[in-house]
Amino acid sequence: MPVETTNKLGTFLRDRRMRLDPTAFGFATGRRRTQGLRREEVAQRANISPTWYTWLEQGRGGAPSADVLNRIATGLMLTEPEREHLFMLGLGRPPEVRYKSVDSVTPRLQRVLDALDPSPAIIKTATWDVVAWNRAAAAMLTDYSKLPREQRNILRLMFGNPRVRHAQDDWQSVARFVVGSFRADAVRAGADAEVTELVEELSRTSPEFAALWRDNDVVPAHGEGVKRLRHPEIGLIELEFSVFAVDGRPELGMIVYNPVAQSDAERIRSVIESRAGQ
């Protein structure tokens, strides 16, 4: 059978429609010429016109709206990767991100962080809550396990914790970078309500944050740079940081801080070992 290439959207819709069991959705089986749901049944589940859905499968009627694609994705019980593929076929772009609140990570992702010692590494959400970290991060950045969950937030710590502020070699530059990165990160993740709440809180409690937020600076959230920290036990240390997206988890990002010099790595390891013995 030849592979259809001219109407990839229609081919994908038809394939997913034919995989569904009519009885699972309360439709009578009766006499059906093909397996799966009928077009009008998909249209019914998606709450769209049967004619419009038929045209989409046939490659007629122009590009669908994002709302229609979301309805079809729901009607066809598409997974999140399938929904993204549907949008790429129908509109040439991924769908807007549906922000999901997260307070932990999978054991597999935690093992990735643990394997990075002595490089500090954390996992943050779109609102910059830290939800996972390794021993090096606890030793060099903040021991998040000793903080209430609501305080495990990079912005709250940067603008409200004197110890974190003092640890920055150039707090003003770091703070400006953090706010600009946060602005880009939050918009990408679609966390409008959560971001608004956090921004209003920080604007009330920190005039410095309020001023930086009003500047409207935007910094690429996924990038790299150098961070200089003053550590109470080993003094000034230089770390190269890289920010990574977590594949399949648009609401999460990973930051890894690599020691610039081998001697710095050894100093971090000594702090980790000393704390492990306590």
Rank of each mutant, 00 (worst) to 15 (best):
V112E: 06
G26F: 10
G59P: 08
D103H: 15
G61R: 14
P95I: 00
A132G: 13
L89P: 01
G61M: 14
M77V: 07
P81H: 09
G62M: 14
V112N: 05
R19K: 14
R93S: 10
R39Q: 14
V102G: 04
S119M: 11
S65V: 00
N134E: 04
S119L: 06
W128P: 00
R31G: 05
L78Q: 05
R108C: 10
P64N: 07
S49Y: 13
A132V: 10
H85D: 06
R17G: 02
R108T: 15
S145V: 11
E41D: 07
I48S: 01
W133V: 08
E96L: 10
R111T: 06
P107K: 03
S101I: 14
L20G: 01
V131F: 11
T74L: 00
S65C: 02
G26S: 12
D103I: 15
A136H: 02
Q58Y: 14
G59E: 09
R19W: 10
L141D: 07
D117L: 07
A24R: 15
W128I: 03
F25K: 00
A46H: 06
S119E: 03
R83D: 00
R60Y: 14
M77F: 05
A73V: 00
S65M: 02
W52E: 02
A121D: 02
I72N: 00
R60T: 14
D143T: 08
F25A: 01
L141M: 13
M140I: 15
A43F: 01
D143F: 09
R39N: 13
D67V: 01
R16P: 04
M140C: 06
G36I: 05
P120T: 09
T54P: 07
M18E: 15
F27M: 12
F87V: 00
Q44Y: 12
G62P: 09
P94E: 04
L91F: 03
R108S: 15
A137R: 10
P107T: 03
I48N: 02
T29A: 13
M18W: 08
S49C: 11
M140S: 01
E57F: 14
D117F: 07
A137N: 12
W52Y: 11
F25G: 00
K124V: 10
D129A: 11
A139N: 11
P22A: 13
R19Q: 14
A66D: 07
D129M: 09
T74C: 00
E57Q: 14
P94A: 10
R135G: 03
E40G: 01
A66T: 03
G59N: 12
H85V: 05
R71S: 10
L37C: 08
R16L: 12
F25V: 02
R33V: 10
N47F: 07
V102M: 14
A136Y: 00
T79D: 01
R111Q: 12
T142G: 06
R14E: 04
A138D: 12
T51H: 15
D117T: 15
A132L: 10
I122N: 02
G36P: 04
N70P: 02
S104V: 07
L86T: 01
G90K: 11
G61P: 13
H85I: 05
A137K: 11
A43E: 01
A46N: 09
S49E: 09
E80P: 03
W52V: 05
D143K: 08
L109E: 02
M88I: 05
Q44L: 15
P50Y: 12
M18V: 11
F25I: 03
R32Q: 13
E80M: 05
D117N: 15
G30T: 06
A66Y: 03
L141V: 14
P94D: 01
L89K: 03
L141H: 11
